[in-house]
Design a protein around this nucleic acid. Structure first.
Lengths: 243, 243
DNA sequence: CGTCAAATTGACAAGGCTCAAGTGCCGTGG
DNA sequence: CCACGGCACTTGAGCCTTGTCAATTTGACG
């Protein structure tokens, strides 16, 4: 993977283009930010809770997640991320990380100095608006996750997580519900849905037996997208994929 | 309740003062926004999911919550709110509501036209920064709720919810962990923690039996704050109450 | 005093967890 | 090229936390 260095802006601009109409000057402003590229191996921690953060981290290639730890060591994943996602925009206004960011696969990220980003936002408020909007989408997804984990049964939770991930991948140009890569382990899926990996396994089998999904290694197909959305109670409005 | 109209800005400015150093001019800018006060009875819906929203809603007095509904009718509360909280700042950049806002007690709110708020933010970027920060705190709390509902057992979930609410009330000048009002029903607490009201009742009794809390009607005391925080796995960092 | 919503309690059911064993896959090194 | 090791995946059995259902009690308020 990632043997050649990818264009660090492509995925981000692709996402911004769907929601905001940033001018060429504003995009150039982003391009003119100094950046520090870095590769991480699968499972590496990019940001640890409690850490002081002075850079903003953009995922260029690969997959990542954000998670928090409970006192008993239990891990709760709070979001999954694909290429083009900004992993810690909250540090624009908070010094200290309140959760962890970790890669799921080998990944390539770029870091922007937060100070330069702040200056760019002052000069070009539309850039700030686009990033603020991104934060609001994040928050909306967190709310849906609270609902998912709090009020849906295991089968539905997993179906929902799969639908959301499929939709995110499709929006990022990384496949479609009919064919995408599910890079995380069943343990990860459990940590995202508040279940154990054992039960995740059983539910994935059940969804496959029902003909809703078809698995082949890390590749997955949602075999019946309408019925799957129904089974998942998935209504993509909360992703705010359209402006 | 709320028989006399409260100063609509007091609680909000109190909160903003803790985190941001807005100038007198910026605060005056907020005060100069046209506003529409409105009273709601307990249990009233202020904003419904799917609705087009063109005003921003500030809670001036009373308590409210935000929630989402699952396809089976299950309700998941995603946040509780006290005086001074902005209930739907996301509509600054989203037209359509993706969740519901409901009062818990009789409440007084004021609505600002979103358009005027946008103009104020353009003129005074520091106001935008303060509001953006507020969004980020919201998002941080949502992440903690995902953890709470996903990875903690019933007793801990409820203890955590109580600690958070106590901390929010204290920050808003509405009491202290040693004495505050718990305005929501046990049904509401269940909807916030992903439990049934029956089990909430059992756990509240257990927490009381353990000497962690003392209840008297809607008034509640956290009898042993250090031990309660321990039992709740409550570390208030995620509330970002200090700048 | 009557009414109604909320709180409380008990008995029983069930969804999901724990523990445990075994399988499959893939990268690595001999 | 094959053997090995490790991690993820799979499956089964039994248990436990929490949900369901139902009956009472309590408390606020007219």
């Amino acid at each position: 993977m990632a043997s050649s260095r990818a264009d660090p802006y492509r995925a981000l601009f692709h996402k911004l283009a769907m929601l905001n109409s940033l001018s060429a000057e504003e995009l150039d402003g982003i391009k003119s930010l100094p950046l520090r590229p870095q590769r991480f191996r699968a499972g590496a921690t990019i940001i640890s809770s409690g850490q002081l953060v002075s850079e903003c981290c953009l995922l260029v290639e690969g997959y990542a997640c954000r998670h928090k730890l409970a006192s008993d060591g239990g891990r709760q994943i709070v979001s999954f991320h694909v290429a083009g996602d900004i992993l810690d925009i909250q540090h624009l206004l908070f010094e200290k990380a309140d959760h962890n960011v970790q890669t799921i696969t080998d990944a390539e990220v770029v870091f922007f100095p937060m100070r330069d980003l702040r200056r760019l936002i002052e000069e070009r408020p539309e850039v700030g608006k686009a990033l603020w909007r991104d934060c609001l989408v994040d928050a909306s997804i967190f709310r849906e996750w609270v609902l998912n984990v709090g009020r849906r049964d295991a089968r539905m939770r997993i179906a929902h997580m799969l639908c959301e991930f499929a939709a995110k991948c499709e929006a990022a140009g990384l496949g479609s519900p009919a064919q995408f890569t599910l890079p995380m382990t069943q343990e990860d899926i459990g940590d995202a849905t508040g279940l154990t990996s054992v039960h995740v396994n059983r539910m994935l089998r059940q969804l496959a037996d029902e003909g809703l999904i078809a698995r082949a290694g890390r590749e997955i197909r949602i075999a019946d997208w309408p019925r799957m959305q129904e089974a998942a109670d998935f209504q993509p409005d909360y992703l705010h994929l359209a402006a």
